[in-house]
């Protein structure tokens, strides 16, 4: 009994520790700018939406949101669809050098972003892709694809082989096996992969900063970073923007929470 109490106490402390900065950000984003510098409060005094209004009225914050949605959305669709095909082949088909291919795919992610940002810039400039959507999507796909492939190979390997063999004997082509059996059964895996890929792209900063030139193509993290002026830092607006950028992802993750957990732990226990 005392073990349970202990456990709850530790959990509560951990949750408070993790959630406190978010709570503070939400409170501060609702606090009028004039009193922001004062002592932190547990509840906003004279709550106001002025920072949120300013985001859209003054700073056209819908532009970076649109850019982020386009870039992250396209990257996610590309990664999951192409990644699923590659992963299925790597998980199931008999071919030479499977391990080597998987190793090379993983190796792609081992280069620190900062090390390749200059060569990538030259490359994209030569392709006239600087300050364009493809100019961000291309590097994102390169970086997110290995994660997608590795996750999906894991999911596909856990599917019972019997089902696919049964489908083949039943007369289904490889393509039909994929579409009618493998994909529906790996929906949790696909959802997990999609969400992780989306989050990666949604939060990415360095490439987005380096390969865009102006607000027309800047994504949310870059836009937020550029809020600060020479003489002042608009904390209220920065926090409001941060909340707006985090909320959609948080809501999606919470909505799919059970599926993601299922996906991440699938195969850990039988049944």
């Amino acid at each position: 009994m005392s073990g349970r109490v202990w456990w709850r106490a530790v959990l509560t402390a951990l949750v408070l520790f993790a959630a406190a900065p978010f709570a503070w950000a939400i409170i501060a984003s609702l606090t009028p700018g004039a009193v922001l510098g004062g002592a932190p409060a547990l509840w906003p005094r004279n709550p106001t939406l002025e920072h949120y209004r300013a985001l859209f009225a003054v700073r056209s914050f819908w532009l970076p949101i649109r850019n982020s949605l386009v870039v992250a959305g396209t990257t996610t669709v590309l990664c999951v669809s192409a990644g699923a095909l590659a992963a299925y082949a790597l998980a199931r088909l008999e071919m030479r050098g499977k391990r080597a291919i998987l190793a090379v795919i993983l190796a792609v992610t081992m280069f620190p972003q900062i090390a390749i940002v200059s060569p990538l810039y030259m490359l994209l400039r030569a392709m006239h892709l600087i300050d364009s959507y493809p100019g961000l999507i291309l590097p994102y796909v390169t970086f997110a694809m290995p994660l997608a492939v590795w996750l999906l190979v894991g999911f596909f390997r856990q599917l019972p082989r019997d089902l696919e063999e049964q489908a083949m004997v039943d007369g289904a082509s490889r393509w039909q096996v994929m579409r009618r059996v493998v994909l529906p059964l790996s929906a949790p895996g696909l959802a997990t992969t999609a969400i992780l890929t989306f989050i990666y792209c949604w939060n990415e900063f360095l490439f987005a900063l380096s390969f865009t030139l102006g607000p027309e193509r800047q994504t949310v993290p870059v836009a937020i970073a550029l809020f600060r002026g020479q003489y002042q830092i608009p904390w209220g607006e920065i926090l409001a923007a941060a909340i707006l950028a985090t909320a959609p992802v948080a809501i999606v993750v919470l909505a799919f929470q059970r599926r993601i957990v299922q996906g991440l732990t699938a195969g850990a226990v039988k049944g």
């Binding site: 019972p160 019997d162 089902l163 063999e165 049964q166 489908a167 083949m168 004997v169 039943d170 007369g171 289904a172 082509s173 009618r180 059996v181 529906p184 059964l185």
Partner: peptide, 28 residues
Amino acid sequence: PQARDVAMVFQSYALYPHLTVRENLGFG
């Protein structure tokens, strides 16, 4: 296997878990 026109019953039954009995029966 697709071209051999044989039917197989596996030890695990290998029923498609996402399909109804009707869809399982009609899959082939």
